[in-house]
Simulated scan of single mutants.
Amino acid sequence: MTPATVRATGHGVGPLLREWRRRAGISQLELALRADSSSRHISYVETGKSRPSEEMVLRLAEHLDVPVRERNALLVAAGYAPRYPETPLDAPGLAVVRQSLERLLTGYEPYPAVVVDGGFRVLVANRGIAMLLDGVRPWLLQPPMNAMRIALHPEGLAPRILNFREWREHLLDRMRRQLALPRSGALRELYEEVAAYPLPPVPPGGEDRAGDGHGDGHAGSPLALPMVIEHAGRRLSFLSAIATFNTPVDVTVSELAVETFLPADPETADHLRRAAAG
């Protein structure tokens, strides 16, 4: 792409920025105020009448909360080189990051914790996760493991998740939110695959009590939707939390998500402690 003005023909950075602004639900004037610009300049950029500088592209992307991978796409559409590298997690340059994640997950034991990438591939998991995977068919545990397949496949955790229909909808909705990003088709293919898995039968005493917030104390939580799962004849209840890196400057690091599972009741916490002690 040359420095010449990019016409608004559906190509170039203008339409992309306009789409991100609309997704953010803000006006051209509000974006201009945030980015220390003018609404006229924002309008000219979006319609292709003006080619933004590299600094302006990055500034607008920051105020629109555009993910790092898509910031590279905006730069390329504007005729600039990508700014952010994409380093494999097993590369020497990210050794400290991986080691820190492993220490974090080990320190969280006996509670389950896992690190996934933008395609929900499992990169690091602790022994708490390994314990919950008892009974999952071996083919689902072959690298590269995928957290969505393991959770939703009938030969994975699905038959043991007692509030499966609620938890399934939560996971699919999480994927749908990411599908709004203009990434490769791999994530959409994964979504279509796991959404088509057949629903397992409701286990005895399962969905009705585990999903309505009543019953034996393992089911409902006033805080968030729990994952209620059967393990070794017991009902365990977890609340999940997801953490990401702040202000990442690498595509790989920006898409890492640390998901931790906090016991939602004293019985679950006690069972995990006793199981870890052998």
Rank of each mutant, 00 (worst) to 15 (best):
L162H: 01
A180C: 11
E230R: 11
E207G: 01
R235Q: 05
R103N: 14
R235W: 06
P143D: 15
P15K: 02
A95V: 08
A130I: 14
V76H: 03
P52K: 15
V96H: 12
T9P: 00
P198S: 12
E19H: 13
A77H: 00
D173G: 14
S53I: 12
D90K: 12
L105R: 07
N246F: 15
H231K: 14
Y80W: 13
V202Q: 12
M145N: 10
E155S: 07
L58T: 09
G217M: 02
A147R: 01
G48A: 08
L199A: 03
L272W: 05
E70A: 14
E192A: 15
F120K: 04
S100A: 14
L187C: 05
A210I: 00
G220V: 09
V76I: 04
P159H: 01
A277S: 09
Q99H: 15
A4V: 07
E54H: 09
R183S: 14
E155P: 07
W20I: 10
T47S: 12
E255C: 13
A32V: 07
R127G: 01
R168W: 07
I242D: 08
L33C: 14
P222I: 03
A32N: 08
R209G: 01
A186H: 09
S254F: 11
S37H: 07
A180F: 09
V258S: 10
M1P: 08
L58N: 10
V253M: 01
A224R: 11
S221P: 06
E259W: 15
P82V: 03
P144Y: 02
F164A: 01
L31M: 05
L236W: 09
A219D: 07
S39Q: 14
V45C: 01
D216H: 09
E189K: 09
P143C: 09
R188S: 11
D208C: 05
S237Y: 05
Y197H: 08
R103G: 08
A113F: 10
A73I: 01
A81E: 13
R23Q: 13
E192Y: 10
S43N: 15
V66E: 02
L152Q: 02
N72C: 07
N146G: 00
P182L: 06
R127F: 03
R7Y: 11
D208S: 06
A241Y: 08
G93A: 15
F261A: 07
L33P: 13
V96Q: 10
G220Y: 03
R103Y: 13
T247W: 05
D212A: 10
D36E: 13
P200E: 00
E70L: 15
L262Q: 10
K49P: 00
A158R: 00
L133W: 11
A24R: 14
G128T: 02
A276L: 07
D216M: 04
R176L: 12
T260F: 09
V251D: 01
S100C: 11
G128I: 04
T244E: 13
G205W: 04
L239H: 13
N126V: 07
P15E: 05
R188N: 02
E192G: 02
V136I: 10
L190A: 10
D265K: 06
Q178W: 03
E46S: 04
N146Q: 04
V115E: 07
L190I: 05
T2I: 09
L101G: 04
V251Q: 03
G25R: 06
R51Y: 13
E169K: 14
